[in-house]
Amino acid sequence: MKFAVVVFPGSNCDVDMYHAISDELGEEVEYVWHDVDSLDDFDAILLPGGFSYGDYLRSGAIARFSNVMKAIKKAADEGKPILGVCNGFQILLEAGLLPGAMRRNNTLTFICRPVKLRVENNETMFTSQYERGEVITIPIAHGEGNYYCDEQTLQQLTANNQIVFRYEGENPNGSLQNIAGIVNEKGNVLGMMPHPERAVHELLGGADGLKLFQSIVTYWRDAHVVTT
């Protein structure tokens, strides 16, 4: 299975993402610069965290007009797994691939620490290796992770089981309904503020994020590899 890590000017979690896939997951991975036309060679697309275009105007607002976004939309339509973490999530929101928007954290501070998440939906291609209701520890690092959507969108998210992760216990940023990660209606685009790529080895303080990447591989193998 071949992963793409899309790199924008200002991405800074691209190396962690690459490391998680190549060294901990043991799958093929390549960096892809934001100006490429095609992602057809890849089976899954990862949008890393960082501060694309300096977060000017709004987080993700400028990156969403990058050339690569056309290829990302195409991959989304084709049903390929697309994961946006932190700034990657913000870009997916700005691009309209996921509903809602991010506000400043209600604390007005940049928060960088491990938090507890509850796996609300383990029937996605990103979470099949977790138990439903499992509480995991994953680091967050953001100043704008205060998720917001209107009432109607929230009802849709809830009805379609699109809320994948919620903050467990204390809500660090004020996000609506403790939302930490959501998928699109089709279930192949996941956006989340916490950084699973920073939790893939005990040496990093925990490995709870690894199962997310293993879920993607399991999904892909089930769909593409014929076992005899």
Binding site: L57, A101, R103, Y148, C149
Partner: peptide, 8 residues
């Protein structure tokens, strides 16, 4: 398109 995010 760009200057405002009309969701919020």
């Amino acid at each position: 398109k760009l200057l405002a995010n009309t969701v919020i």
